[in-house]
Design a protein around this nucleic acid. Structure first.
Lengths: 244, 244
DNA sequence: CGTTGATTTGAGTAAGATCAAGTCGGGTGG
DNA sequence: CCACCCGACTTGATCTTACTCAAATCAACG
């Protein structure tokens, strides 16, 4: 665990799309920061059932939040991108019922979980932001549940690709019409409640229709509106989000 | 909209399972309360896409929170029971992307949404509780997503029955080994991502195995541990929850 | 090279959807 | 009282989507 960049210089915070924070709040946040941490690709950030005394913000890299059944079936609940909070989800102070695993190498900004309470007391606006983030995460889950419960395989895949493209672009990962895409087809399967084989065939169908391109770890969308139409997906304009 | 019971006398608040609130916090809450409201069975509490300036707590009755696709397919995100908050989910101040509908007659306690900010500023402990509730809801969604994504039909139905039984019992709805169960099989289908016909056959299978009984609107569980085993479901002990 | 993980392809199958009736019970109006 | 209607629940038959199993390909890497 190293000290890392001070919050005032955090490169993420500069990005459009993140709500600017005023000087005192930033200072308070800095005071709570416990350092930075790097987890290698494939490494565990949180283990299912194990309590962590830390709370993290993803600074860079991709991670997955998942739950699994005793027999090994696994469901990915969400993909974590830079700016996302790790560890808020599981019942504020209790053991999380989910694991978090790095997909690529992940850089994290760590806070002491016990300082949560200080945030609420000392900086109500940060407490509000925290709740905003929780409500936002819930909205992502709603969308995922709708997909898995009611969309067909091709709709689900189209949906998740549009959605991840937008999220990645929103945190500045877009480069000439592509975003990095480190997920394997097995990840997509576990994310959308499908088998890996079926994901493969579905991706082929989308490629054949020229809707997407997927080359050396990057994703490009051929025809956004057509892809959205396939997914029956109309996203709401993204509000500026807080960053802790 | 009537004035209703003062928060200090709220019958829900007496129940074991709800965290007691101290005098000043209770008074603050009372000050924000805008009255009570009754919605008939089948009535809309929130419409998809429509902004509401209110925030509600369910006092009695059952409701569903759902999203739907343009072609009419519907996914229920959660069942709302007494003590649950309505309207926190959708991006704190923005239009909710979901609807909420009464299943039975529902009695609601209303707050002005604009007072959310006052809560955080004036009563950090209430702000914390709010976040706790959001994190808790997220946990419910996690469980639902795992079910719909990775559990078989019989596992899903077993799971949801165990889960709803516990939740209903936790808010005092249990009477000699049964809880009220106002959901139709179509509700269960929309909740678990199945067709109504298949829900019917699956319920029959559970009944044949003596695991559940479902009579005149009440649910009884024949063999809890067996039902849990079917569902591959091990729930964590319920912590005391806050009530707003 | 041999190994390892990801992707691809093919063949057979099963879980659950869809379609179509039909039943049951509780109102409602004549 | 009875005919009717409506919604929820049942049942049977058929069909489709997506799963499973198995094996081949491919690229990266030591």
């Amino acid at each position: 665990m190293e000290t890392g960049t001070p919050c005032t210089l955090c490169p993420l915070r500069r990005r459009r799309g993140f709500k600017p924070l005023d000087e005192p709040a930033l200072a308070a946040l800095q005071a709570l920061k416990r350092g930075e941490m790097t987890v290698p690709a494939g490494g565990a950030i949180l283990s299912e059932g194990e309590t962590s005394c830390r709370l993290y913000t993803v600074l860079s890299g991709w991670a997955i939040r998942y739950k699994s059944l005793p027999d090994g079936r696994r469901q990915i609940m969400n993909i974590l991108l830079p700016g996302d909070l790790v560890g808020l989800q599981g019942e504020l102070m209790a053991a999380p019922a989910h694991g978090v695993e790095a997909v690529t190498e992940v850089r994290l900004c760590a806070f002491a979980r016990s300082s949560l309470w200080d945030i609420f007391r000392g900086h109500p606006e940060l407490g509000y932001d925290l709740t905003w983030l929780a409500a936002h995460e819930e909205r992502l889950l709603d969308e995922a549940l709708l997909s898995v419960g009611r969309r067909s395989a091709i709709e689900r895949i189209a949906m998740v690709l549009v959605h991840l493209y937008r999220r990645a672009a929103a945190v500045g990962l877009e480069r000439d019409g592509t975003v990095p895409f480190p997920l394997t087809q097995t990840h997509l399967a576990d994310l959308m409640g499908l088998s890996p084989v079926h994901v493969n065939r579905t991706l082929q169908a989308l490629r054949k229709r020229q809707l997407i391109r997927l080359h050396d770890g990057r994703l490009a969308i051929g025809d956004l509106s057509a892809l959205r139409r396939v997914a029956e997906y109309w996203e709401q304009p993204a509000a500026q989000r807080p960053l802790l």
